[in-house]
Write a protein that binds this DNA or RNA. Structure first.
Lengths: 110, 110
DNA sequence: TCGATATTTCATGATTTATGGATATGAATC
DNA sequence: GATTCATATCCATAAATCATGAAATATCGA
């Protein structure tokens, strides 16, 4: 994760619809959700949602798999973990005893 | 941490100068840095930096203490911890064995 | 009180971003 | 191959955001 990736990710999450999408997908876990379901759940028009999903995907926060006519979207745990690690990098001057446990613990394998 | 606070925090971090400031202050830890030092370190004009510091402070990500003519800024670990917890809330449908350790570990006391 | 220093506030113009309608693509079904 | 469904893309417009210069505020020392 470098600065630009982190910026993309944070900017992507700094918008209401996209933050809601991300949290919805985090909650959905490995089941994921179809694009249409997401749009309906959040009451957002299809084209707007598509654009927002694209922003999140480009930022590495979600990914999708095609299922016939549908696209199923998932939260990308690797992406969010990398972002969190970047945010806390060199925490407290890099003192490892204080902060390394935080980063290690982000190895959540949802 | 509610949705609006989280949006403020993410939008605040989704801008290059502000993300750099935040990481600088995370690195500085309990020592913090003067506003002027921060502006100089990142080569940003003082009024621009002041505006950006205000955004971060309003978002609860940094805080300051006056020291004579200077303001010393610090990363607000409570703020960032709350944000990270909000992002991962109800991860995997709230399955606690998978994801609770991540949230607990964010109790880093820098 | 006066001047110097550190920082913030305000107003503005320029750039970026979000949204909605229309349209296009891609996959399944008939 | 025509139709239909799910989703993506294009384009124009409205809204939000950003950096900047000028002015204001707060603190310190003489």
């Amino acid at each position: 994760m470098d600065m630009n990736q982190a910026l993309d990710a944070l900017a992507a999450l700094g918008q209401k619809t996209r933050l809601e999408v991300f949290r919805l997908l985090v909650k959905a876990g490995t089941d994921g959700m179809h694009a249409g379901e997401i749009a309906e759940a959040l009451n957002v028009r299809q084209n707007t949602m598509s654009a927002n999903l694209a922003v999140l995907a480009r930022a590495g926060l979600i990914r999708n798999e095609r299922e016939g006519r549908n696209l199923r979207y998932f939260a990308d745990m690797d992406g969010i973990r990398g972002l969190l690690a970047f945010l806390m990098e060199d925490c407290c001057g890099g003192n490892p005893t204080l902060c390394q446990p935080v980063l290690d613990a982000l190895a959540c394998e949802c």
